[in-house]
Nucleic acid binder design. Structure first.
Lengths: 158, 158
DNA sequence: CGCGCAATGTTATACTATATCAGGGAGCCA
DNA sequence: TGGCTCCCTGATATAGTATAACATTGCGCG
């Protein structure tokens, strides 16, 4: 275990079982349950290599469970996940993504490729601070910055 | 805050007739027509004090023209407007807004109030440059930054 | 005139998101 | 145990956002 300084931003990404464990712990800490259904949704999210729509996730969960799940139920769970910071939403793509380090909370920036659809999650405190400062200067109370860059990733620029 | 752009970024906001004239000129310069329909949509946009959904705009245009316009037609025109930079889209709100200075092109930042729904349009080259630099550092070609801050405006904080 | 082209109309449909109420299981307490 | 509440999920309906596909109109031009 790396040391947990006040917040050293050692952002190694979790994956596999440790990620599930961390997500579960985060949910429990938020006073939310970790049900079979939620675990199934999380597994699907964690298995994606790019953000997916709620309906795509619904299809994948349905397939995984062998029975039809209503989109409705998936939305409820995704909303909880986002609120608890174990999942993230890409506003400009109406899509959801697992949060590979659910234990630290900060504004995040997505580089969203219009070629392959993949999103790279970047944390940059300098940008975040600057945006929040700009908002504050305008007398605006920033609650949820949405910072996304549409464009082309290195692989898709070719 | 060095101002090295080709133009001086004197961002006085246009309104009323001069704004329409500027928008029209911008569209023509982009090789697009300025039809009665487009003028009607633009008038509605220019009369809004906060971003509105395509359907709300459809209703307003329909009312202004005294006949029912299909949402479809409005979407087409809004898309053109956004492409030509005479209108802007707030991704996190699925809403459209007139661009009060259509003649200069830059990334923009919206402060979107969850209380009153108003959006403040801020231009900040420092943030824009930093975001683009971050993207470039990741080998990502930034084409369209989406920078929006959800929160509460000064009036709604009270 | 006849043709092509762009804009708009018309209709249908896909996609995204939420509301509402019913059912069912776990824990709690008399 | 029985009954109770609370939360999660199911089921259904509907609202809201966006695009597809083809028809029609009107205008400029040879």
């Amino acid at each position: 275990m790396a040391s947990l300084a006040p917040h050293n931003h050692d952002h190694r990404k979790l994956a596999g079982a440790p990620l599930v464990t961390a997500a579960r712990a985060t949910m429990l800490a938020a006073g939310e349950q970790w049900t079979d259904m939620r675990a199934a949704v999380f597994d699907v999210l964690a298995g994606l290599d790019h953000p997916a729509s709620a309906y795509a996730i619904t299809d994948a969960v349905s397939k995984a469970l062998g029975r039809r799940i209503a989109a409705n139920s998936i939305y409820r769970i995704l909303d909880l996940f986002v609120a608890a910071n174990v999942a993230l939403r890409v506003e400009s793509a109406n899509a959801y993504l697992v949060n590979a380090h659910p234990e630290c909370l900060h504004d995040c920036l997505f580089l969203v490729c219009d070629g392959c659809g993949k999103a790279t999650h970047v944390d940059d405190e300098a940008i975040s601070k600057q945006i929040r400062a700009t908002a504050a200067a305008a007398g605006f109370r920033a609650e949820r910055p949405v910072i996304e860059v549409r464009g082309r990733c290195a692989a898709c620029c070719a």
